[in-house]
Design a protein around this nucleic acid. Structure first.
Length: 432
RNA sequence: GUGGUUGUAGCUCAGUUGGUUAGAGCACCGGAUUGUGGUUCCGGGGGUCGGGGGUUCAAAUCCCCUCAGCCACCCCA
């Protein structure tokens, strides 16, 4: 019986593993530039860690089960609760602000589609212990620089930024009762995906008046700083956007304002967000969100009992990989080996092994045929492996104590004495 | 979890109203080429036609079930 990977899980063949490593190395390098330190936590957590905070709805999507000890456990669906626990446990001793990042593999049990699997890797960048909107700008800048480093430009993607406090003020001013703000947010979130009548219908069903519902949709349609300023003018909470504007100003000073736009339809799905929120989309919006995040100032208090302001984002490898494929930005496959050593006859093998190992000790990648093959055959293998240098050792060479060194790109050959060959080959392999 | 749609070689696909032993290109392996690569030429392996059941003299083709991919809901790491 044929077995295959479980639905929503991936086999990483060398090409896929190369893409994954490419993404990971850019994630690490950009996070490092901003001074973020890498951490990790367990892939399995007590189910309680997620149910306590998120309520029963998220439990339907959890990859949870009973372990052999009868414990209710779950594969982690997100990193933030683990982070909140870890930070809270040592909150006293950690220097603030805390800049941490992680690349966890996360799991959710739901039906897969393009860009959405049951498992993915996600860059999590979090900044904890700082309320200044410059912290928000800092974190958003990391997300932008990751995409820039991967070769994407401001024509390829945009960060849409909003602020839940601002949206709350606007939605209340639109006539939505205090207790129904969440329902209004849910409608904002879907403004691009569902027709206005349907959204208003849903809000009315939730207890919001039809007039207020129509106003909410107008609010959600606000894009750009000017439109937002105009909408806020004269409101009691006119200053609610101060932080948002400061954040945008900081990004402008960094030279990143071309990537950013204010978009009031962004409110984020999770309940724990408290302030500035943002999502990153490809320019055509043909894919799902590449990245999403925001401020969650109450979460470490709710989970760990230590109140610390915090914000962060998650960026998954799946949508990002799709985007890179679409844009032709897959990493080039590097030459696999530097040197291929050819033994003309089986008598030459010991000398080939000895030379190959000396070169490997120098850090070069070296291969040779694992069974007796004709010289022509071995050359073919060397070419197919993209070897930069081929070394040929036969009876004649051993007799003279030399090695034939062939530069594969130039197609030229020289005889080099056995004593000098290591130096010569390391130089040649590095120079090309 | 609900609905729609697709499934033929490792990949991209062809396969007539059901009709002999299911094909092509690319990839892979071997030979031409037992001391010299990418080209070329020749040859080869590889398919339970997603799986199971049914109709029929005969099924890749028609019917049912199931699994998987994709799309839309749901939900949004």
């Amino acid at each position: 019986m044929k077995t295959q990977a479980l639905p929503g899980f991936r086999d990483f063949y060398p090409a896929e593993a190369a893409l994954r490593n490419h993404i990971f190395s850019v994630w690490r390098s950009v996070a490092g530039r901003y001074g973020f330190e890498e951490y990790d936590g367990p892939p399995l957590e007590p189910l309680k860690l997620y149910t306590d905070k998120s309520g029963s709805e998220i439990v339907q999507q959890l990859y949870n089960f009973l372990d052999k000890g009868g414990r209710e456990i779950s594969l982690r669906p997100e990193m933030t609760p683990t982070l909140a626990r870890m930070v809270a446990a040592r909150a006293q001793g950690l220097k603030k602000p805390i800049r941490w990042f992680s690349i966890p593999q996360l799991f959710r049990y739901e039906r897969q589609q393009r860009g959405r699997l049951r498992e993915h890797f996600q860059l999590n960048v979090d900044l904890i212990g700082e309320t200044s909107p410059l912290a928000d700008a800092e974190v958003i800048a990391v997300s932008i620089d990751v995409l820039r480093e991967l070769g994407l430009t401001e024509n390829d993607f945009k960060v849409r930024v909003s602020d839940r406090n601002v949206m709350r003020a606007l939605v209340l001013a639109a006539g939505v009762p205090e207790g129904l703000v969440d329902k209004a947010f849910a409608a904002c979130d879907k403004i691009d995906r569902e027709p206005a009548e349907v959204l208003i219908e849903k809000m009315v069903a939730g207890g919001i008046s039809e007039a207020a519902g129509a106003e909410v949709l107008k609010v959600a349609g606000i894009k750009g700083g000017e439109a937002l300023r105009a909408a806020l003018r004269g409101l009691a909470d006119e200053d609610s956007a101060k932080q948002l504007f400061e954040c945008i100003d900081s990004l402008r000073a960094m030279g990143l304002d071309g990537y950013v736009e204010i978009d009031c339809s962004i409110v984020r799905g999770l309940d724990y967000y408290t302030g500035i929120v943002f999502e990153l989309f490809d320019a055509g919006k043909s894919l799902r969100a590449i990245c999403g995040g925001g401020r969650y100032d109450n979460l470490t208090r709710d989970i760990g009992g230590v109140a610390l302001p915090a914000l962060g984002f998650g960026m998954g490898d799946v949508v990002l990989g799709e985007l890179l494929k679409d844009k032709g930005l897959l990493p080039r496959v590097e030459s696999q080996i530097s040197v291929f050593a050819v033994a003309v006859d089986s008598d030459d093998l010991p000398e080939v092994l000895s030379l190959a190992h000396e070169l490997r000790d120098k850090g070069l990648s070296v291969e040779y045929a694992l069974k007796g093959q004709s010289v022509g055959k071995q050359m073919k293998v060397a070419a197919s492996r993209d070897a930069r240098v081929v070394l040929v050792i036969g009876a004649a060479e051993r007799e003279e104590s030399v090695v034939v060194v062939r530069d594969m790109a130039a197609g030229t050959e020289t005889k080099v004495s056995r004593e000098l060959v290591i130096e010569r080959v390391t130089g040649l392999a590095a120079s090309i």
